[in-house]
Nucleic acid binder design. Sequence first.
DNA 1: ATATTAGTTGAGCAATTATTCAACTTTAAT
DNA 2: ATTAAAGTTGAATAATTGCTCAACTAATAT
Lengths: 124, 124
Amino acid sequence: MSKNEYICDCNVIHKDVVDKISKEMLNNSLFSKIADFYKIIGATTRIKILYALDKNEMCVCDIANVLSMSKSSISHQLSALRKNGIVKCRKDGKEVYYTLDDEHIKKVIELGIEHIEHKEKEIG
Amino acid sequence: MSKNEYICDCNVIHKDVVDKISKEMLNNSLFSKIADFYKIIGATTRIKILYALDKNEMCVCDIANVLSMSKSSISHQLSALRKNGIVKCRKDGKEVYYTLDDEHIKKVIELGIEHIEHKEKEIG
DNA sequence: ATATTAGTTGAGCAATTATTCAACTTTAAT
DNA sequence: ATTAAAGTTGAATAATTGCTCAACTAATAT
C-alpha cells in the first residue's frame, strides 16, 4: 500500500493534519481571486493611487501630477484597478474622475501599515 | 510662467486638490513596504499556504501534499514569506514546522473574501 | 473648421517572478 | 558506516508585469 495518496514528490508526514487541512481548503477559484485582489494592490504605484483616491475623487492628470508620473502610466494602472472592481470612474467634459469602488481599501492600507509597524517594532 | 509646478507630461487640472493630496501622501518607503506586503500575499500558492498555516502548524512536506506541489517550490515560497516576516519556523528532528508570524493574516484573507463577495453580488 | 487638451490603448522592452531541476546539508534509521 | 528522507538553495527557464512611446478618440476652445 502506498504511504502517500497525495500527488507530490514527498511523503505525508502527518496524515491527520494533511487530511483535515485538505478538507478545510477553499476552492482554487476563490484562492485565485483573493490572490488577484492583493496582487493588484501590491504595487507601489497602485497603492499610492488608492491612498490618494481614498482622500479625494481625482482626475487622471491630477493623479499623474501627485505621483510625478506620465498620464499614460496612470491610465494603464487605473484601467487595471477598474477591471478588478477597485476603482470606478465618471466622465465630466474632457476629464475622467476616479473614486474608490471598494469599501475595504481603507482597511487594507491600515492593515498593511499595522503589519509594517509590528515588524519594525520586532527589529528595533 | 509655467502653469504646472509639478513634473509630469500633463497640466494640473485642480491645483487645490493636487497640493492638498501631495501634502497628505505618505513617504515612498512606507508605500513600498505596504506594496511588498501585499505583493507577497498576492499569489495563489502563497495565500493557500497562509490559509493552511492559519489553521495548523505544518511541516514542508505536509504543505506540499495539501497543495499537490513539490517541496522545493513550497520551500522557496516559505523562504520568501519568512523574509517578509509573515511566517516563522522551528526545527524538530528532520522536519521544519512553519506557523504564521503575523496576526493580520486572518484579517487579510477575510477582507479579500469580503471584496470578492461584494463584487460578485454587484454582478449577479 | 482647426488646434489643443484629457484620456485611452496596443506594442515593445526591461525587470521581476514562479516553478523546476540538480546538488547539497542535516537528521534519523538500519 | 550507509542509506534514506526532510528541507534548502542557486541556476535556468518561461511567464508576467510596469513603464514608455506613439497613435488614437473625444471634448473644448479659438
